[in-house]
Amino acid sequence: MNKLFQYVPGNSLIHRLNPVTKIALTVVICAAAFITDHLLFLVCLLAIDLLIGLIAGVAGRTWSIFRGLVKIAAFLFLLQVLLTRAGNPIFWIITDHGLLTAGKVVLRLIVVCMPLTLVLAVTRISDLTNAMVQVLHVPYPYAFTVSTAIRFIPQFLEEMSGIMEAQTARGVAFDQAKGFKKFSMILPLCAPLLISSVRRTDQMAVAAEARGFHLRTRASAYKQYGFSTGDLLTAVFCILLLAAAILL
């Protein structure tokens, strides 16, 4: 699970894109998924997500993200189908409208979540931060906050897994419980997780201050983030995708 948010080194076409282009592509895919109401277009967007993963050479990571999302989506699909009453009944309380709505909801969920995780697999977080500051003129403290929040996700997951291991060793039956029971056992552990997170954040803030955090400006970054033909083609693709989402 922790590896889902880790950068995968590579030199693919996607890796070489400007981090801002990658952010733009992610935003456009997410926007297109919310704008369109066409089931087939959502399927196409999903295919684009998978294709991006394939071109970036992170097929294994893409597949594991997809698998994880399908599990969540299956639960969501079931809820949606059982709770939607509108439309013509097909079987028991299941209606055609319910099936269609549920299909769109879960597809939208998968389509939106995949590029967000894929962009982290093909871009170093430091590059994301620097490009946001340099190209998008985002103030460094804000860019740093965003990148730190992303960086903290795997750390929190690791911390949670460490807490669960420690609690199992003292007799809490995490290794025997499943489903909702396990979830209810996890809830009380939010206190140690919260405390360790606050401590870690505090330590990080002190370390950042000690290294001259407030002295940093746009000019501080030594790496330049230029735009190539690949970025231009991606920009054209983004415009076409957005147009298609609006028109369809």
């Binding site: 420690a166 060793a169 552990l189 405390i195």
Partner: peptide, 15 residues
């Protein structure tokens, strides 16, 4: 079997 970890904060969860 009792297990004492390096980081006590992972074991402590009460007020």
């Amino acid at each position: 079997v009792g297990f004492l970890f390096q980081n006590p904060d992972r074991q402590i969860c009460k007020n």
